[in-house]
């Protein structure tokens, strides 16, 4: 178990050391505080994405679902004047509805989730622009309390994210539900032949992923003090990259939530470090792209060595 995570911890430490030596003021409390405040939304969505990849699916719509759920949150809070808890419920319902559409369409018409969620990626973004009239909605005050609340020096979103990672990992490795998901990802036909209907499980996974995107929407809106219909464009690829760096297979049947969390950390440290050594956007993307492929190649080698 510990050996499973060792490689990623080493990679993470190596990145921190490299940037601490090369970037001025990287190894400071404010840098780590910034990273700690910026990872919870990515982490939470990465947990959902890990589940989706494990059943050999993919969810490209998380970024738009996040934007739509956040936009609705902003409207309910500002335009309708509802109290925060109710607004959060409405926001989560938006996530659930998007997830239900994704899941039901995938199982009902046996479509590849790539296509269905690609459709949702466009549709939910369009809906986000529509409901907000393309305007950023400033929320401020009550919402910011979510990110400003700290327990033992850790912010509420970070604690929430870590809890979701722990629960996600336990569900995946210790429950019947989790084992079924791995079985579906490994060989769906075999699951069906052994008398288990995989469809409800698949729908559940898409529901989970979109709901977690809605949870991330609340955190992101709190962090930005506003709901922005342009939020998180391209975020789905960042999340998938983090999960894949964590060794979860795009072919399904294999993955770990905790390792996805490390993937998120690696991407976050890489992004912050590159920005701090003054790398421009194009350089950042070039290097991030190479790191993703390199990480997966290394993972393949590691696996082969272990299996040999």
């Amino acid at each position: 178990m510990a050996g499973d995570y060792l490689g990623m911890v080493v990679a993470l430490l190596a990145l921190v050391i490299v940037f601490s030596l090369s970037a001025k003021n990287f190894f400071t409390a404010t840098t780590f505080r910034t990273i700690a405040n910026q990872i919870p939304d990515t982490t939470i969505v990465a947990v959902g994405m890990t589940f989706v990849l494990i059943i050999a699916g993919i969810d490209l719509s998380v970024s738009s679902v996040l934007a739509l759920a956040g936009a609705v949150l902003g409207i309910v809070l500002v335009n309708w004047g509802w109290p925060l808890p109710l607004a959060i419920v409405v926001c989560l319902v938006v996530g659930l509805v998007c997830g239900a559409v994704n899941g039901l369409v995938v199982v009902r018409w046996r479509l590849p989730s790539f296509i269905v969620t690609l459709g949702m990626l466009e549709a939910a973004r369009g809906a986000a622009y529509r409901v907000t009239q393309s305007r950023t909605i400033y929320v401020g005050g009550p919402l910011e309390a979510i990110t400003d609340t700290t327990i033992l020096g850790l912010s509420l979103p970070l604690i929430g994210a870590i809890l979701i990672v722990v629960v996600g990992q336990l569900v995946l490795s210790r429950t019947v539900f989790g084992r079924y998901l791995i079985a579906i990802g490994t060989n769906e036909e075999a699951v069906r032949l052994s008398g288990i209907d995989p469809r409800p499980y698949k729908v559940a996974v898409f529901l989970l992923c979109s709901s977690l995107a809605a949870v991330a929407a609340v955190i992101r809106a709190a962090r930005m003090s506003s709901a922005n219909p342009n939020a998180a464009i391209g975020f789905e690829l960042e999340v998938i990259a983090a999960v894949v760096i964590g060794g979860t297979s795009l072919m399904g049947g294999r993955g770990s939530v905790v390792r996805s969390f490390f993937g998120v950390l690696i991407i976050a440290v890489l992004g912050a470090g590159l920005a701090q050594i003054g790398a421009q956007e194009h350089t950042k993307r070039l290097i991030s792209g190479c790191v993703i492929v390199l990480a997966v190649i290394l993972d393949q080698y590691r696996r082969r060595v272990r299996n040999a």
């Binding site: 970037a23 001025k24 990287f26 400071t28 404010t30 910034t34 992004g271 912050a272 920005a275 701090q276």
Partner: peptide
Amino acid sequence: QPVASALING
């Protein structure tokens, strides 16, 4: 936002 973070921390 990441650009600003890097400026503030750096």
